[in-house]
Design a protein around this nucleic acid. Structure first.
Lengths: 348, 348
DNA sequence: TTGTAGGCGTTATCAC
DNA sequence: GTGATAACGCCTACAA
């Protein structure tokens, strides 16, 4: 066995530190230790054919000795093809998002892409930080954002973006989303069919958006008495947010016989608040959610909700990215929408 | 001078001359188009000081035209410091794991690391695939694995690994974990204090492990009548798995007055099964969970459980990785454990 | 202010 | 089989 001490020719000059974080071994070090050329090392490490079994073994031994691992940067530089997507999620504690993420991961994996995940915790500044990093490290970004178009563009530096839900001031990026109108059509029809006429809504933190709009539209269509006083804002998309919001709504509009929650967590919070007040669900007050979390089956009464195929939403977003990258026109309209489906359970 | 509206950023550059397979623009292309050297482009793009505002604008315009974005590989090669960790999660639908992931992401972000996430879906083969990829693209891996040490090592190719939970055949990698013994000590003490003597367990899919072991130990300590017939295996770590497992357990041991579930989902499944049989929780049968999911507060009755600080677990794992990378000794024993805390609610 | 030279770690190409 | 040599795209000197 050769015993070639890596006599660092031009690197860290003459400093022979035995401890501390040593420089990572390169292909060159391995080559020297094994007494072969870099090329041969490459052949051995990458399991190429044209190499003598003996030298191969010797090279691999040297590599092991030096704890050599090829640099992914150098490799990426020379072998194209590694695609990395960034995924920005607002709240990992809301079961909705992990499921969307699962869809993204699934589709990305099928294409051989990697996914770098960021948790923005519903914070505008953190969204921007995420973009600052991902714009340097990812080939495309997918996610939920509150920042307006121009801000996003500024922090994106040209990296393609696909929104998982288009916000009010977000029109120029590709997006996928949920067909709230189609969902609420089913939802309100169901409530009206059950005899409800005084229906309130617990909206999310962002205020006016597709869900509220659709709610208002359907509500008018059925000729129900509704204005903004029938809508309460929740300051969190969570059970606690729903509880607090429902308290306020009941104070404002005690006459309601049904509520539509911005999402399932809020709806579940609403149910709890209703019961605190000694009213029964659904007999005194019906509750309709939006999301279709499996959690909704576990609460009592089980939550009637507009179920969304969240995995599909995630997969759709990846497909959208693929189109962008291929220079194709992104899907738009119904092709890029997931349509909610009413799931009737006990709460409404 | 041309001016390109930002709306175009979703499309491919219109200037795409040079026919052929449209190569991505490099710093060189920009330099040529702007009529400057590559360094000047670098200065403009990286916002360095020493550059004439005029040329800078010209360069940036050229970059925009060509849709130029610096190669992360070339950059990584020259600017060290980008650390990427791989995170392998078995089941994103179980609320436990997103919360651990949140802890990992949080800690990683603080260190300026990125995290590539893989969903192994509790599948051995998928675990290996994840490692095959991550060993090439990540500087370290954190995750849940079922494969034994030697298999992991083989697919790891020298990349440091930190297990989020040490399995039976996994001894040679660094790990963090949960102190099941400390948890069950509290849990069983609580049940015994409440007068229970005939206590069953719903174990997870992997069979014998720290939780079962701890259960058996505590059970013996309190001198309770327990052997394997008091333990049923669930074939899924889910509510459905818990329901099915509880059915079997009740068939085998109808005399039990309390059950300990491997995790909260299983425990919740158990509660449902108990009620199907017309027995009340906790009056006829008490249920104790393990995990402390917030979901447990929403079910009826609310779940008594051994709460784990899941975010902390994730953060701990990242810290463990940092030690490995620094060449330090990884934490071991109690330092690397999260201790469960009994949260008494209505179910037991 | 701007350009030239060289190196980062790896692989492809083409000799030997 | 094996080894020079030349990219790959970028950045940090240093020179002009």
């Amino acid at each position: 066995m050769h015993s070639v001490l890596a006599d660092d020719q031009q690197r860290e000059p003459s400093v022979d530190r035995t401890d501390g974080p040593r420089r990572r071994a390169t292909i060159h070090d391995v080559a020297k230790l094994a007494g072969v050329s870099r090329q041969t090392v490459s052949r051995a490490v990458n399991d190429k054919g044209e190499i003598d079994p003996g030298t191969k073994e010797r090279v691999l031994e040297a590599a092991r000795l030096l704890d050599y691992r090829p640099s992914r940067f150098a490799r990426g530089l020379v072998r194209k093809g590694t695609v990395t997507a960034g995924l920005v999620i607002p709240d990992l504690m809301n079961p909705f998002f992990p499921e969307v993420a699962a869809g993204v991961l699934e589709a990305a994996e099928q294409r051989g892409w990697q996914v770098v995940v960021w948790d923005s915790r519903t914070d505008d500044a953190r969204e921007r930080e995420a973009l600052d990093v991902l714009s340097h490290q990812a080939d495309a970004v997918v996610g939920y954002f509150k920042n307006p178009d121009d801000v996003l563009a500024r922090h994106l530096g040209g990296v393609p973006l696909v929104l998982l839900e288009r916000g009010p001031q977000q029109t120029r990026f590709a997006a996928v989303g949920i067909d709230a109108a189609a969902g609420l059509e089913q939802g309100l029809a169901h409530l009206v069919r059950a005899g409800h006429r005084r229906i309130g809504m617990l909206d999310g933190v962002h205020g006016p958006g597709p869900r509220r709009e659709a709610f208002l539209k359907e509500t008018r269509r059925h000729d129900l008495p509704v204005d903004d006083s029938w809508i309460a804002l929740c300051d969190e998309h969570s059970v606690a947010g729903g509880e607090a919001g429902m308290e306020r709504l009941l104070d404002e509009r005690p006459e309601i016989t049904a509520v539509f929650g911005f999402n399932d967590l809020i709806a579940i919070g609403a149910m709890r608040a209703v019961r605190w007040r000694g009213r029964r669900v659904p007999e005194d007050l019906a509750v309709l959610g939006f999301d279709g979390l499996s959690l909704g089956e576990l609460v009592d009464p089980a939550l009637t909700t507009l179920h969304i195929d969240k995995r599909r939403l995630g997969r759709l977003a990846v497909e959208q990215v693929a189109r962008l990258r291929a220079g194709e026109e992104p899907m738009s309209g119904a092709d890029a929408w997931v349509i909610p489906e009413l799931v009737v359970r006990a709460s409404a």
